[in-house]
Every structure is written in C-alpha cells, then in structure tokens.
Write a protein that binds this DNA or RNA. Structure first.
Length: 583
RNA sequence: CGGGGUGUGGCGCAGUUUGGACAGCGCGCUGGGUUUGGGACCCAGAGGUCCCCGGUUCAAAUCCGGGCGCCCCGACCA
C-alpha cells in the first residue's frame, strides 16, 4: 500500500478525550475516531488489524469444530421476556420500537436468539453436539463507557454457543473452547491468564475469564504464584489466617461492654473519626434478606463484603434488607445495626474469618445515635458461622495452598461459561434422547471481545513514540520509507516496494512528499513490526537499513538485493514467536 | 445515578476571575519557494453559530437561569 493513496490521517497532538496510552495512540495514529460516547469509527488501519484478529479467531474456532453463523442484531422483546432478561438486563439494553409499536432491543448477547433458533430446528440427540459462533457488532448502553475501545457501547465481539446432550458433553465442549481461547490469545500476542470468575447476570455454573494484566485495567485478579490458583476479585477465595483456630479458643480479654453516644454518626468513616479509632477496630453488621430469613453478615470495618460469597455460602440469593426490615428487627435506623442481641431475635449470624481475630471493637448498638465500644464476639453476642465473606486482597492466603496471594489489575478479553440448562429450560428448548425422553440442551457460551483485543494490544504494546504491534495482527507487517521525497533514494525505495510485494509481504510504503522526520514519526506511531529505511546508509555504502520496531536501536544494513530475504526471515521469526504449536 | 472536570477555526490550548480593543497563540490546512535521518524554514493565504436556548446590560466567549455534549472517579458490567 502506498501511503500517498492510503486513508491515513495521523494527529500530531493527543486528543483531549483520551487518557489511556493505547487509546491515545490509536487515535493519534489514525486507527479510530470517536463518533459519540462509546461509539467509534474503525479507519483502514484499525480495520486491517481487526480483520487479522477475526481471521485468527475464525481459524481457531473452526479448528475446534465450531461453525460460523450470523445472527440478527435486532431482537424482539418477547424473546427476552421469556427468560426475564428484558427486565433484568435493565438500562444496559438498547431498546427501540418499530413502526407498529412493537418492542425490540439491539442484541447485547445472543443466548435467547440462538436458543430460539435451535429449539425450532433441532429435535434429536443424534444432531448433537454442535457449537455455533458469530463475529458481529454488539450493543450495550453501558452506564459508563471508558477507555475508548476497552469498554464501548458498540463493539465487535465473537460469541459462541455450544449445545450438548449432557454435562459430560458440555465438559468436552468447554475444554475445547478453553484450548481454542488459549491459542487465540497466544497468536494475538496477549499474555492472557485464565482465572475463575463469578457467573454474574449470565447465569450458569463454572466459568473462566481470560485476563491480560494491565495496571489501568478495570478488572482485578488475585493469583497464587506458588500453586497457580487465579481468580477475579469477585470470585477469589481465601483461607482463614493461621491464627483463626486459636482465636476461636482464646479467652476474652476485653474491658466491659459500654454504650456510647454517637449522634448522627452512621458510616464507618464517621464513627471511627468520631470515636478516634481506626476503621479496622469496627465491625460492620450488614443485614440481608435471604428469602424471608434475615441474615447478619459481619466484616471488619475497613473491609468490603462480597455479596457473591454470602450467596454462595447460604446457597441462595440475597438482597440487602430494606430500612423497614432493619428498623423492625434492630429497633434502630440504618447505620446503627450491631450484632449484640440479634441472634435472640432470630437473625442468622455469619461473620468473616477476620472477625474471629478481633476483640475490643466497636459495633452499632441497635439504637439510634449509639454504638457499643469494647465489644467481644465471644462474650457479647453469638455467631452461627464463620466464613470467607469479604473480597480477597493481596496478602490473603491462597485457598488451595495457603501461600500469600498477589493482586493486580487486568483487562478481560474473553469469558467462557458453562450455562447448563439455564436458558434451555425456561425457553423449553429440548431434544429427544435415546430413550425417547425430552431433555433440555446442556449449553455453554463463549465470548471474546474482538475490538477489545485491539485495544488491549495497543495498551500493552507501546513505547513513548507509539505502538509496537505483534506481527500477527499488525495492520502492516512491514513499513518502508525513504528519507527523501524524490531522487535516487526514491527509485531504490520503489524497487524495494516491488520486491517486498512480490514476496507477499504486507508492506506500507511511505511515498508521501513529507520530511524525513514526519515519516519516521508516523512509522513509529503506527507500529508495524518491521521497518525498512532507504537513507544515509544507502548514500554512503548502498545499504538499506532494516530494523524491528521493538528494537529500533539495532538495525541491520543489507544491500538492496538482500532486503526481501532479510525481511522474510525477520517476518517468519516474528510469526514463530506467536505460534502456539511451536511451544 | 452520585462526585469532579471540561466545551473557543481540523487538533492542542489562552482569553472567562474584574463584561468593552480586529477573539488570540501553537500545530495542521492552501499557494509559492528553499529543504529531507527524527514532527524543517521563509513568504502569502483560507478557515470561527466562542456547545445550545433564554435573561441581565448601551455592550456578553466573559455575568445569571435552564438544557445538552464529552472525559475522569464511583455505582454497574459476559
């Protein structure tokens, strides 16, 4: 491609709208432009990259036996009402009405649509298993789009749905996808860590996320470098501290319980500030409604309760008790709840492991404007169970091997779920098994953010001058320029351009009448992995300079006739690096 | 939805506090010339609903009221 004819518009200055480095380079390099919040144009450079990502995903999905389809973007409301997600999905769903007044949404995901398709087409276990996928634009009216392509409202996604006759079949489908995903991310140059995750709104049982560590990422993951345990923050479990058992047996050594006046002091910050104690000397009492039964969850004042853990422990969904329920059971308004005396009122008491280690702490007194100080759980109230209730954090102990966990931020690039019959059952999507029995399909679903991969690569591969693309998804494999706009060097560059094209190398040739400086800057900004320069070394000794974008300071000088060969060699080296079969 | 910020030629910004001058600067863009190893130089140009609506005033980019867009933090999140 000749740059003089290519739709390539780079920006000298960083647009004010971006503050992530990769987003800035994508904007400056002329890859993308914003149309509206969370909505982007993909210009030719970005589209070339996206197509390469798509090609990789397609190859690996096909290799794993999946088949590509293209499903509608516009979904009738009735389908979403069938599973209850029309209401559940909330504001994230882009809703619209057609001329007849019928409700539709733009698909944020396609479980309903695919189950509907399959239930009307597939009857027999003989037709199973299969896995259908598509690569298409998705719409989610994100509460807050951010980071450019990282979280957009309109984005490219690959979503796949597997249909099996039973759990064993699902397990096989799931493992195939896991392997395919590992290959895809490897080929894209992404170091994706597989972590356990919570199912969230999608439902189902097991699920794994593929996370790329990045300090500005919106997700957090916890990892054990000892045994390899890894989970996102929502899901990460922890072992109780080694002194937990002793703490259970310890004798009380705490001054007498005392009620103190704490007018208008409701939050942990207020109370600890007012009383002059550290937040970690408070115990928060959070009241939940578990299907009519009230549950008190206790966590240290400086820690955050993980509702998913509470639900998991109880084996049922919970919601925060409302102000009325709290008033009724504690006799006080929200903010003054405490554990003392609650058990007697039929509240189930569950405390985080950490609470066992505490003594002489502050709790709400179940009376407006009052707290207790010098509280001890062994003496002053009873606890039914200790459990892992709070979010894990760095330093907590691995649930598998008790080594300390580390925590880091990451970008989620893929997510695979075992759905089971979560959708097939309510939608009555069934097949007939060998014995003539109707059974619901056992499903899995598998997502990859295509445009998010591009964003993630941009974030994680750059230096101060621009992007540094992995060759597999670079818009061009090679970038060729001469330092002059006309003259002998240009003739050489022209010749090289044809050499490279004839070797089927994807080359961008900067034939614009720009100064050398501009061409160098643009070359580095866009980040094609191999750079070829006809310049002073040609003038001096008829040599062409070849270098890798990632190591600009280590060029090799070769005669014109050797350029094609050298570039080809470098190219295959770069591809090999990202080849999952090479190991 | 809560908190913070912001809106001025294509891009980045100044001017707004304390109303008044042709609404400025850098980059980019157009024409001409000189250049060509890291965003060159000279000359001459073009380009503006100062986010929108309303109000105050002799006078509004600037003050007041309302609205909208965009970015960040949080809530949220396949």
């Amino acid at each position: 491609m000749r740059l003089s004819q290519f739709f390539f518009i780079s920006l000298r200055e960083t647009p004010a709208e971006a503050d992530l480095i990769g987003h800035q380079f994508l904007l400056r390099g002329g890859f993308i432009r914003r149309l509206s919040s969370g909505i982007y144009h993909y210009l030719p450079l970005a589209f070339r990259s996206l197509n390469k990502i798509i090609h990789i995903v397609r190859e690996e999905m096909n290799r794993a036996g999946a088949q590509e389809v293209l499903l509608p973007v516009l979904h009738p409301a009735e389908l979403w009402q069938e599973t209850g997600r029309w209401d559940q999905y909330g504001e994230l769903l882009m809703r619209l009405t057609d001329r007849q007044g019928r409700d539709f949404c733009l698909g944020p995901t396609h479980e309903e649509v695919i189950v509907d398709l399959v239930r009307r087409s597939v009857r027999s276990y003989r037709q199973l298993p299969f896995n259908l996928y598509q690569i298409a634009t998705k719409f989610r009216d994100e509460l807050r789009p951010r980071g450019g392509l990282i979280r957009a409202r309109e984005f490219l996604m690959k979503d796949a749905y597997s249909f099996d006759r039973d759990e064993a079949g699902l397990e096989i489908s799931f493992q195939k996808m896991k392997e395919a995903y590992e290959r895809i991310f490897c080929r894209c140059g992404l170091n994706a860590i597989v972590v356990e995750a919570e199912a969230g709104a999608i439902g189902g049982t097991d699920n794994l996320e593929f996370m790329v560590p990045y300090p500005e990422g919106e997700d957090r993951l916890l990892q054990c470098h000892q045994c390899g345990y890894a989970a996102n923050r929502e899901r990460a479990q922890r072992s109780p501290s080694p002194s937990f058992q002793e703490a259970l047996q310890a004798t009380v050594n705490c001054p007498t319980l005392e009620k103190v006046f704490t007018p208008q002091q409701k939050t942990v910050e207020q109370v600890s500030g007012f009383l002059g104690v550290a937040p970690c000397q408070l115990v928060k009492t959070l009241l939940y409604d578990a299907d009519g039964q009230l549950v008190a969850a206790l966590v240290p004042g400086d820690k955050e309760l993980n509702e998913a853990k509470l639900q998991r422990f109880l084996g049922q969904p919970v919601k925060m008790a409302d102000a009325h329920a709290i008033q009724t059971v504690t006799g006080a308004s929200v903010g003054y709840s405490g554990p003392v005396g609650l058990s007697e009122k039929g509240v189930r008491m569950i405390a985080d492991y950490d609470v066992a280690l505490m003594s002489d702490f502050v709790v709400g007194a179940n009376e407006d404007d009052h707290h207790f100080i010098h509280t001890d759980w062994r003496r002053d109230f009873s606890i039914d169970d200790f459990a892992d209730l709070r979010f894990a954090e760095a330093g907590d102990l691995c649930p598998k091997c008790q080594s300390p966990l580390s925590e880091e931020r990451a970008i989620e690039v893929g997510h695979i779920f075992k759905l089971g019959t979560y959708y097939s059952e309510p939608m009555r999507a069934t097949f007939v098994d060998e014995s003539g029995q109707e059974r619901p399909f056992v499903m899995g679903c598998y997502g990859i953010g295509i445009s998010r991969i591009l964003a993630t690569v941009a974030e994680t591969y750059s230096d101060r001058d621009g992007l540094i693309f992995p060759i597999t998804i670079a818009p061009f494999e090679c970038w060729l320029m001469s330092v002059e706009g006309e003259g002998e060097l240009v003739a050489v560059a022209e010749e090289l351009y044809h050499h490279l094209l004839s070797a089927r190398i994807e080359v961008a040739y900067d034939d614009r009448l720009e100064s050398a400086g501009v061409k160098f800057k643009d070359m580095d900004l866009v980040g094609a992995p191999i750079q070829v320069i006809v310049g002073r070394h040609y003038r001096a000794e008829q040599k062409v300079e070849i270098r890798l974008r990632e190591r600009r300071d280590q060029p090799v000088l070769v005669p014109v006739q050797k350029v094609r060969e050298e570039v080809s060699r470098l190219r295959s080296e770069l591809y090999q690096r990202l080849d999952p079969d090479k190991g």
